[in-house]
Simulated scan of single mutants.
Amino acid sequence: MKTMTAKQVENQHKELNIIDVRETDEVAAGKIPGAQNIPLGLLEFRMNELDKSKEYVMVCRSGGRSGQATQFLEGQGYHVINVDGGMMNYEGTTE
């Protein structure tokens, strides 16, 4: 599984396709600007919204759920990267 640090995401978030797999109420407290929210439990049903020709960066609170999402999407043929430590390690701006 490919990974990147929260610091790398902070520095590159404008160029990345970020998918936040936290629940809606968690995201309401703040998400990375431009990130799309698809809760982990809905990912299987909404993965058709993603483009297999693009690379996606998966994020959650600590990296566990996004790791599950990364493994699942990799198995479906998507290009994905997991954020180590998730939002707990992210120090950039949120919206």
Rank of each mutant, 00 (worst) to 15 (best):
K2R: 14
K2Q: 04
K2L: 01
T3N: 06
T3D: 05
M4H: 07
K7S: 10
K7I: 03
Q8M: 08
Q8Y: 12
V9L: 05
V9E: 03
E10Q: 15
Q12R: 15
Q12D: 13
H13K: 14
H13S: 12
K14N: 10
L16P: 10
I18S: 07
I18N: 10
I18G: 08
I19P: 06
I19S: 07
I19M: 11
D20W: 13
V21T: 09
E23R: 08
T24W: 14
E26M: 08
E26K: 08
A29R: 13
A29P: 07
A29W: 10
A29D: 08
A29H: 11
K31H: 15
P33S: 10
P33I: 04
P33K: 12
G34L: 05
A35H: 14
N37V: 03
N37E: 11
L40H: 10
L40M: 07
G41P: 10
G41F: 01
L42E: 08
L42V: 02
L43M: 11
F45Y: 12
F45A: 04
R46F: 05
M47L: 12
N48S: 09
N48I: 04
N48V: 04
E49W: 07
D51W: 01
D51L: 00
S53G: 02
S53C: 02
K54N: 03
E55R: 05
M58L: 13
C60R: 13
S62A: 11
S62I: 01
G63Y: 00
G63F: 00
G64Q: 08
S66N: 09
S66G: 12
A69S: 12
A69G: 11
T70L: 01
T70D: 05
Q71K: 15
F72P: 04
F72I: 11
Q76T: 09
G77Q: 07
G77N: 07
H79N: 02
I81G: 00
V83A: 06
V83E: 00
M87I: 13
Y90N: 11
Y90D: 10
Y90M: 09
E91P: 13
T93L: 11
T94V: 15
T94H: 15
